[in-house]
Amino acid sequence: MIHFDNVTKVYANQNRPALDHVSVDVDKGEFVFLVGPSGSGKSTFLRLILKEERPNSGAIHVAGKDLARLSNFKVPHLRRRIGCVFQDFRLLPNKNVYENVAFALEVIGKPRRFIRKVVPEVIELVGLEGKAHRMPDELSGGEQQRVAMARAFVNRPMILLADEPTGNIDPATSIGIMKVLDRINRTGTTVVMATHDAAIVDSMRKRVVELEDGKIVRDQSRGVYGQAY
């Protein structure tokens, strides 16, 4: 599903590469934690998958497509197959829960009948039934993140990327968020989650890829956050 082959990314005006000869394979339906300190290259890894950045060398394949050969014109179609969740939720403050989720479908031109059908379903999936008409500022952080997940998942993407989704949320609420991610993963969606949250990684017992200074220092199935030092 996601295939990195010897990928190196150096940002302009920086000597040290953000990713240094990284090779990783993520299969369909996998749940992968991406761990490592700030600046270790986690976000760069996710941005490369979305083709928001281009690697300096190496090849990236996402959903069977070679990103180097994917024309800019087709990048939007790639992104329709990838859902994204962020630490800061990125909801539209002037739209309610339903409208925020529907927005993702409206802007890719889905018909209204389809939107009316699937948006309530996905709002229920993330556990926000009955709150469809709340505005984002009336919701707790955890609920806002659920809205963001509903928006990321509403178009049934093949891949869900989560960049520290629990970063702004207290540990108790985070468990609920992880349950939703797990539920999404069980529908067959590949989930890649970058995180600092050791407790979550340890409790989930999923594959862990650890980055340090742009290099993969560990790739372990059913891993934990930190190695036993």
Binding site: L50, F73, P76, H77, L78, R79, R80, R81, I82, C84, R90, L92, F103, A104, V107, I108, G109, R151, N155
Partner: peptide, 17 residues
């Protein structure tokens, strides 16, 4: 920029944005 950022993210076409 918020709206257009999200539009980009969910794969809205350039024309739509």
């Amino acid at each position: 920029r918020r709206e257009t950022g999200i539009m980009r993210l969910v794969g809205a076409s350039n024309l739509y944005i």
